[in-house]
Amino acid sequence: MLGSNVIVSALEAAGFTHLVWIPDSHIGTWEPELRKSRLTLVRVCREGEAIGLAAGLMLGGARPLVAIQCTGFFEAGDAVRNVAHDLKLPLRLLIGVRSERAARDGKSGDNCPHFAAKLVDAWELIHSRFDPAESTPQQLADVFRKLTEVATASAILWAE
């Protein structure tokens, strides 16, 4: 499993200026490293709000990453639609997919992995899958590069 120090270093190297986020039981473990990083952390109350806030940051020239669990991504649908397709801003999302590994191993009936994949497709977000338990730092750098090099909104489905 990639450590939070490796992940946060990769976020910095990818050029993100702000992390707009709501922690979950996986993403939340990064917080001590994030607090030591160059990233400005913006804690919001609800995920749709994270998307609107990221839009304002992008209008002002910043490079935010929105990090949320897939459950919040489901809630944030209209904001994603608006920012990605009305404003056409290059929204960057890291979506923690709850129970992804357990579901893959047949140990969870959680429907989050099923709907997370369907909804990133529905919102026409260019996306990659990434599992920090099975990947190297170089693969992490590659996935962030892919996330940021496209002109349109994009996402990483991050296995939890």
Binding site: H18, T40, V42, V44, G48, E49, A50, I51, G52, L53, A54, A55, G56, L57, M58, L59, G60, G61, A62, P64, D78, A79, R81, N82, V83, D86
Partner: peptide, 26 residues
């Protein structure tokens, strides 16, 4: 002046806060 329309209802304040954070002092 930024006319936030088409919009996502309720996102005007978050958008404004994002602008403030991106452009300190503005």
């Amino acid at each position: 002046d930024f006319h936030y329309i088409p919009s996502s209802m309720g996102q005007g304040v978050p958008l404004g806060l994002g602008l403030c954070l991106a452009k300190p002092g503005r």
